[in-house]
Computed example of a mutant assay.
Amino acid sequence: MAAYDLYGFKGVAVLEAKSKVEERLSFSFEERESFYQGGRYYKFGGGESESFVLKGNIDPFDGEPVEQKFPDFPILLYVDVTLRSEEIKSLLGADFYLLRHELFD
């Protein structure tokens, strides 16, 4: 079963979170720009395989948090279609809080 996980990072600098994720998971994000994603965001992977998106928790349309249940986390890390949820959680460490864990067939 593939997992879709959401992590929150309490630091205010997305570049700090980016560096930590890249170091701990041994990959490099690609910087992207999208109004829909709230401006600058970072992506690794995609398609039908495991992917990661790192972005701010601000909705560009109304200025409210994208994840309204988690307004105390200014930085979000989405981990989609992963088969190694527990491994990623362990590698990310205590700086990243698992906010949501969903399983899909």
Rank of each mutant, 00 (worst) to 15 (best):
A3C: 04
Y4I: 02
D5M: 03
L6Y: 00
Y7F: 15
G8F: 04
G11M: 01
L15C: 08
E16M: 03
S19T: 09
S19K: 14
E22L: 07
E23N: 05
E23H: 11
L25Q: 14
S26Y: 15
S26I: 13
E30V: 15
R32Y: 02
E33M: 06
F35C: 10
F35T: 11
Y36D: 05
Q37H: 15
G38L: 04
Y42N: 08
Y42Q: 08
Y42K: 05
F44K: 03
G45C: 02
E50G: 07
F52G: 05
N57A: 07
I58D: 01
F61G: 12
D62H: 06
Q68T: 11
F70Q: 03
F70Y: 10
P71R: 10
F73T: 14
F73Q: 04
F73A: 12
P74N: 10
P74K: 04
I75A: 12
V79L: 07
D80V: 11
E86Q: 10
E86L: 02
E87P: 12
I88N: 04
L91P: 09
D95H: 13
F96A: 04
F96H: 02
L98G: 13
L98I: 05
L99N: 00
R100M: 07
H101Y: 05
E102K: 02
E102N: 12
E102C: 03
E102W: 01
D105E: 10
